[in-house]
């Protein structure tokens, strides 16, 4: 029970990071972006590449911060991966979404996003192979926090939780303490009025893709660090991040954060009674439950 909750919190933190950008993009551009979760995979693989590069160029960077398996090389690689992933999101928008946005309806955007997801996932497969990979081959020993009830946790997991919370806290400060943050919130609430108030919409769209891409990359790295990395990483997170945005209410950043934890913990608890094969379906059950009880989510407004 406790173990399930702790594991759920860890997964939840990763889902939350992924869902923040998605909820903003979905709200601002008004379409369900099924390619979004592929940003997690892009980020995780970008970090893999740069980790190897840094470790190769400067072997000193390749020692782990004990007891973590995280190395300085990977930490640096993650930061670069965040930038690269944000830039990829912007480029994909320019190449595909922006052009479709200009002439077609939102439904075509959803449709295109599925196509983009398929392309990204399989290009990653072609480049990196089907096989699961790890950042570090060091064995990460779990620490026994308690024997009764049994509670195991790996140092990397603690790091991931702290780092994820730190990133979310930072973004919260940006949203609530800077005029850039006000502008983001203004565009989310009323794009036309935001423009009239001097906010350039295209710049905000770019900013949201950059932020969403960056946070997603971190989420991807964090997942890969505590589990493993494979081309289906993004696809596996797709339904959970959507569930988090729906639970929180589309457009609500704080809702997405809370939604991520709810989805993580609820899935963890459900799997105590259900076989683990049903794990992929859990977010769907949560989505149905929310649609039944509170269709606009915890913090969402009526956008029907």
């Amino acid at each position: 029970m406790i173990q399930s909750i702790v594991d759920g919190i860890l997964t939840g933190a990763i889902i939350s990071l992924g869902a923040i950008g998605l909820t903003m993009v979905m709200h601002m551009l008004r379409f369900a972006n099924f390619a979004y979760a592929e940003l997690l995979a892009i980020g995780a693989y970008a970090a893999l590449v740069f980790d190897a590069l840094f470790a190769g160029l400067l072997p000193v960077l390749d020692t782990a911060f004990k007891p973590l398996t995280l190395t300085a090389a990977l930490a640096l690689a993650t930061i670069i991966a965040m930038v690269i992933t944000g830039a990829s999101a912007v480029v994909i928008d320019w190449l595909v979404f922006k052009r479709i946005r200009a002439k077609a309806d939102a439904l075509s955007m959803v449709f295109a996003s599925f196509g983009v997801a398929l392309i990204v996932r399989n290009v990653l497969t072609l480049i990196f192979g089907h096989k699961a990979q790890l950042y570090s081959n060091d064995i990460a020993f779990a620490v026994v926090l308690s024997r009764d009830p049994l509670l195991l946790i790996k140092p990397d997991q603690v790091f991931v939780l702290v780092a994820a919370l730190a990133l979310m806290g930072l973004f919260h400060l940006v949203l609530t303490r800077t005029t850039f943050g006000y502008a983001l919130r203004a565009v989310a609430e009323n794009p036309a009025l935001a423009q009239v108030s001097g906010v350039r919409l295209s710049a905000m769209i770019t900013a949201v893709w950059m932020i969403g891409g960056g946070l997603s990359a971190a989420a991807g790295v964090f997942y890969a660090l505590t589990n493993h990395l494979s081309p289906v990483l993004g696809h596996n997170f797709l339904l959970p991040v959507f569930a988090a945005t729906i639970v929180g209410g589309i457009g609500s950043v704080h809702g997405a954060v809370l939604g991520g934890f709810i989805v993580g913990i609820a899935s963890g608890l459900a799997l105590m009674v259900l076989p683990s094969g049903y794990a992929p379906a859990m977010p769907f059950v949560i989505i149905l439950a929310v649609l039944l009880v509170r269709p606009h989510g915890l913090f969402g407004e009526d956008h029907s």
């Binding site: 959803v110 797709l238 339904l239 959507f242 049903y278 794990a279 992929p280 769907f284 989505i287």
Partner: peptide
């Protein structure tokens, strides 16, 4: 009755759940 995205997400979810 909701925004069109909900149908997209829910039907995608149906497929995942069905496969499970």
């Amino acid at each position: 009755r909701l925004r069109h995205d909900y149908l997209a997400i829910a039907t995608f979810g149906v497929a995942v759940a069905f496969e499970s």
